[in-house]
Amino acid sequence: MISHLRTMWLVFIHIFHKKVTIEYPEERAPLAARWRGRIVLTKDPDGGERCVGCYLCAAACPVDCIALQATEDEDGRRYPAFFRINFSRCIFCGYCEEACPTYAIQLIPDFEMGEYKRQDLVYEKEDLLIDSQGKYPGYNFYNVAGMDAGVKAKGKGSNEEEPVDIKSLLP
């Protein structure tokens, strides 16, 4: 009996507490930049697709909900021919983002992905690709990689010497 009254009292005094719920959707909670929500594919500073189709995100994904196919343009720059995430499977763990060597795949603070049909939760590259560098502005993988894929010539990358002149015996 006492316990019941106590419970009612405790509930009653909540009327005078500060409200933690908000009037969503009119009002929105502030989400940190590192909040792990909807996944996007970002772009390089030069406007090219950042993803190089390395398959590491797909391999890291614990629910195997990422499938893609790498292809390359005439300069040898790799990009995904298709890139599919099945968000009905995604658990927003962020492993893909962690695995991505190019900062292409990023989880962003957006969770409003509800759909009436589960099929609509399958996102293709067109749905994922955004016209922004996301959280890591200024980074272009090809500037630090050794390959010449039309972004920088051999020897022009950061921390690179000019290509070796193989006809010379000088040290």
Partner: peptide, 9 residues
Amino acid sequence: SGRTAITAN
């Protein structure tokens, strides 16, 4: 990889 996405389209 991709078991749950390959044919999801």
